[in-house]
Write a protein that binds this DNA or RNA. Structure first.
Length: 626
RNA sequence: GGGCUCGUGGCUCAGCAUGGAUAGAGCGAUUGGUUGCGGACCAAUAGGUCAAGGGUUCGAAUCCCUUCGGGCCCGCCA
């Protein structure tokens, strides 16, 4: 019985006291205690003290007396702390038995919160004109981990990547190729996304400063891109698809996959906007301004904000007008104009589909990528626009079905900034793709890979080159993922090239290292784990480790309910700390008796399975050697 | 000007949703640890008016208000 069930059981004991005394409308908490205060604690006495105008201590005494008679086999003792808390002490033999047995299952702590409900997660959504930088990686990793966590709690999750293949940034590339003389073939087989971003995009942007004609060409080209089947739009498709292919290599390298790619050009061609616009008009959610500065525009109002223009006075829809139909499509509020064809099969054998407007292209029976609930991962700079969309979707569906999962940006430390050739007096600086000022994702992954390869080689003389490469990949990808997910979503990450290479302390490699140590113990043991005496776990180190293993379900539930990936990251770290301490202080293979060896091996096995399970939620591998 | 957000040891951050007991980690500093299953480790010491002030409360790092400081957003651009 992992922790959630025990908490629920404890809650019922308290509730039975409340019903017996006609006090049913109190919402109290039951949670794991801080060290030194039993195993489980309840705050009911404080709440009743307020309500009944009595001393919390007296109330807790009374509750303890009542509940002492109700304790089953899992709770050994219940005490009233002088401060007013009610503390429960577990029967540790029963507890370790159920925790260690349950944790042997690959479905350990699979909780059914989602009830198989369909949910859409959209993330990445990087313009296909440049390589991914470390800021994009934060988005991708958040989206991917949310996907994994929601699957764990039994949502039917579908992941989308929105490809904005018709914006100004794409027009800039076209101008670069068609009017600035950039070759379509990158020099020295440079990766195409790097070439487009660093050379063509940055170079073209610089040319705008001197050449004003070029500036005016941008909008002609933009319009041509949006038209279907023009020479320009066909060329733009070719270029953006090549960039996208290169970007996807980086994404897959990070262990991230999708279910479907949505192309903005097709959303435009599909006339989804006309569809949603008439819906907006018929429900009076937009209005045509008759006078004032926005005369002739269709605007949308929201409280505390200025009116937002959806359609300009010349009849052309604005940027946000592209997001609204897409959001509505994701929620299935409008008829799906798309067919779906196979884009490719990804490394994990997952099929990646893409939208198509040509029904003959369809590879399948009609698929659907809409859901009852939609999570859109976009950074907090877009919060105003996302709020408008969230409000609109609430009006359409009558529920909070559209969720903008925002996060703060990744900035560069002044040190890193000066390495990239931009001196600054500020502590940190925003990246800029347009200026070519950013930390490239492939580069940082490569640096980490090399460092870890060498590190591992020094420690393991016997490992082959391919084994070392596989370890370096697991640890480098894990390290980036962990660093991107560890801080709260609303904390700015100041990225520093130097400190990003650290592999000691609260890092992914520390966690993976604890796994590798556990695996070495298990490898060396010849003992089949059979019957185990659960009263053997007496040291604080063993008890702490078992309790941590038991708390996995609380963390999964917390992470899923609050869409908070860092909860799992912290848990993995705490679990690894508990094991490292155990490892240092408690002998396993050299324990005093066979019986002890067996019990401890079972514990080590439970630990390794639980850590691997938790790390997999973070998309982090668990190598058994490193 | 308006809105959003962050502020916890020298540095980087947990804890805040749901107020409660002793504010926890990592890095850095100082010190100790392998006749033990991997030292990417363990253990210990120093270091905190939880930005400031006020309020609510029996009780505030946590809730509310004000101020200060940092960041972001606010186009008939995308």
């Amino acid at each position: 019985m992992a922790f959630l069930k025990i908490l629920e059981y404890t809650r019922q004991i308290i509730s039975s006291y409340l019903t017996t005394n006609d006090l049913t409308d109190v919402s109290f908490t039951v949670e794991p205690s801080k060290p030194g205060f039993g195993d489980i604690t309840c705050n009911i006495a404080f709440l009743l003290a307020k309500k009944l105008h009595k001393n919390p201590q007296d109330i807790s005494q009374e509750i303890v007396e009542f509940c002492s008679k109700e304790l089953g086999s899992d709770i050994k003792n219940i005490t009233a702390h002088p401060a007013g808390h009610i503390n429960f002490e577990l029967d540790f033999i029963n507890f370790s038995k159920s925790v260690l047995e349950e944790s042997q299952s690959p479905h350990y702590c699979d909780i059914d919160i989602g009830k198989s409900k369909k949910i859409i997660v959209e993330h990445t959504s990087v313009n296909p004109n440049k390589a991914l930088h470390i800021g994009h990686v934060r988005n991708i990793v958040i989206g991917d981990i949310i996907t994994r966590i929601l699957k764990k709690v039994n949502y039917d999750v579908h992941t989308l990547n929105y490809v904005d293949d018709s914006g100004l940034q794409v027009a800039d590339l076209i101008i670069g190729f068609k009017h600035c003389g950039f070759s379509e073939d990158p020099p020295d087989n440079e990766k195409f996304d790097h070439y487009c971003g660093d050379t063509v995009y940055v170079g073209t942007t610089e040319k705008y400063i001197d050449d004003k004609d070029l500036e005016s060409k941008r909008h002609e080209i933009l319009k041509a891109i949006e038209d279907i089947n023009t020479e320009t739009s066909i060329f733009a498709q070719k270029i953006t698809r090549k960039v996208l292919d290169a970007q996807l290599k980086t994404v897959w390298n990070l262990g991230v996959t999708y279910d479907c790619l949505n192309f903005e050009s097709q959303i435009i061609h599909s006339k989804l906007w006309d569809n949603i616009f008439s819906k907006l008009k018929s429900q009076n959610l937009v209005r045509l301004e008759k006078s004032g500065k926005n005369e002739g525009c269709w605007v949308i109002s929201s409280k505390d904000e200025d009116d937002k223009i959806l359609v300009r006075s010349n009849g052309v829809a604005t940027y946000i007008a592209k997001d609204i139909p897409y959001a509505a499509w994701k929620l299935g509020i409008i008829n799906d104009p798309f067919s779906y064809k196979i884009f490719t099969t990804q490394e994990n054998n997952q099929t990646l589909y893409e939208t198509t407007l040509d029904q003959r292209d369809s590879d399948t029976n009609k698929l659907s990528f809409s859901g009852d609930k939609v999570i859109t991962v976009i950074d907090n700079r877009q919060i105003r626009l996302q709020k408008i969309i969230t409000d609109l979707m609430r009006r359409f569906t009558g529920s909070d079905s559209y969720i903008h999962l925002g996060y703060e940006s990744v900035t560069l430390s002044s040190n890193t900034s000066s390495i990239l050739g931009f001196e600054t007096s500020d502590k940190s600086v925003q990246m800029s793709g347009r200026k070519g000022f950013y930390v490239d994702a492939d580069l940082i992954l490569g640096n980490l890979h090399d460092k870890i390869y060498n590190e591992s080689k020094n420690r393991n003389s016997s490992l082959s080159d391919s084994e070392l490469n596989s370890i370096a990949k697991s640890v480098s990808v894990g390290t980036i993922r962990y660093e991107m997910i560890k801080p709260d979503l609303d904390k700015i990450i100041t990225f520093d090239l130097e400190t990003s290479l650290k592999i000691e302390g609260d890092t992914c490699s520390y966690i993976q290292y604890s796994y590798a140590r556990a695996m070495r113990i298990l490898e060396k043991s010849n003992n089949l784990i059979t019957s185990v005496n659960f009263s053997n776990f007496t040291s604080q180190f063993e008890i702490n480790l078992i309790k941590k293993i038991a708390m996995y379900d609380i963390q999964v539930s917390d992470a899923a309910k609050n869409l908070s990936p860092k909860v799992i990251a912290r848990y993995c770290y705490e679990l690894a700390v508990a094991f490292s301490s155990f490892y240092e202080h408690v002998m396993v293979l050299n324990a005093e008796s066979d019986e002890l060896i067996k019990s401890r091996l079972l514990l080590v096995h439970s630990f390794s399975l639980t850590l691997r399970n938790a790390l997999s939620l973070l998309g982090i591998d668990s190598p058994s050697r490193m």
